[in-house]
Write a protein that binds this DNA or RNA. Sequence first.
DNA 1: CGATAAAATGACCAGTAGTCACTTTTTGAA
DNA 2: TTCAAAAAGTGACTACTGGTCATTTTATCG
Lengths: 219, 219
Amino acid sequence: MGIAERKEREREQRRQSIIDAAEKVFFTKGYDSSTMDDIASTAELSKGTLYLYFQSKDELHFEIMDRGNQILLVFMEKAINLQKNGRENLRLLGEAFVEFSNSHPDYFQAMMFFQSRDVEHQRINEQKLKKFIMGRSSISMLNNMVSKGIADGSVRNDFHPSHLTTLLWSQMMGILVMYAMKKPAFEYQKISREELIAIHLDLIRDGLKPENMEVKNHA
Amino acid sequence: MGIAERKEREREQRRQSIIDAAEKVFFTKGYDSSTMDDIASTAELSKGTLYLYFQSKDELHFEIMDRGNQILLVFMEKAINLQKNGRENLRLLGEAFVEFSNSHPDYFQAMMFFQSRDVEHQRINEQKLKKFIMGRSSISMLNNMVSKGIADGSVRNDFHPSHLTTLLWSQMMGILVMYAMKKPAFEYQKISREELIAIHLDLIRDGLKPENMEVKNHA
DNA sequence: CGATAAAATGACCAGTAGTCACTTTTTGAA
DNA sequence: TTCAAAAAGTGACTACTGGTCATTTTATCG
């Protein structure tokens, strides 16, 4: 039977074409100003049809963020250099994020806006969200490099590795979200996103391994 | 003439009573679920009157955030200990923020939600917003302690002081905003807000002054 | 072909920020 | 005290939009 397969394929194509339309509209008008009617007419479908494929506007935002996330992951994978130590790799990951933000500003923006939303109030498929929150590959990658760093002695070992990973992730995301949301404040301070992140990476490079720290293992 | 003065006083009282009502409603139902009609009826006024005193719902949110900010400043002022060096004072400021968040969770929450909003899309009195963005006393305080630290040698001097200040501010705000917006992700990692901030403060304490750093002055 | 299921439609609903023509209250000069 | 002008306040109304669902259209297959 090829019909079921064909239908499945067509369903997935339609799904993607709706995300394409949402992307086009979001990237042009911004998330808040985009309406579901805009997206429907861009997709050449009725609004009702959108809801056969997605449960809410938030879920379309989620999908676009997820696409951006896939691209980011490629940047991060490319950035890793296992010849270097863990701490140097953490910096490379940070720099990869900046490169991604420059080469894919629209996806980057969509991701920052998604990160700034309160997850509790979003109507997004529970399963999908859970998978995203728990299994984020970017977190896993960070975690691997933190572990590598602790193993090779380039990263301090007085923090719980997964806590340190979470901190590094939230520092980076947090700074970038703040920059996206409060741009005028940064412009007033005459500091660009690149400069801000460069200083941040320098500061934590040294914080990750204070020179004279004695080595003691974490409980 | 006492009439003009009395009117001015009454106008200010009404203004405050509207903010009081907004606060009550926001703290109870959360910003998004609160309606202007809720606030109006709590204030025992008609909706139209609210708009004689404030230009938008966002502006009421701004006012509540501003009240929180005032309280935070008191915490920060109390925390400063000029007997100690600049770097130690920066940590004290960070800890004061955590104390504030514990003792005034509602204001803290309102501030985090305000920080997570895109300032460009908010209908807030330009003048008011400008003053807030540019003159924030919390930034000034941070800046003073950074300068003190550089002067007393407890803080590295290879960053531009105001850039470092901006970084410290956005790190702290960013982390807390992320925690507020993506709480489930942190809970999954089994890390509390206090732990996260404690690790953060430890990490930057060491990053702010790597032990073997040679002293060179910034251009 | 005709019945059944699947897909798509778009008029409609509910909720709410913000407006404005109108009403009520206050002021102060006559 | 009177009354017109100004100030303050009102709430019905508008505009907008995310989401729903009864109905229609299209595809499947015995």
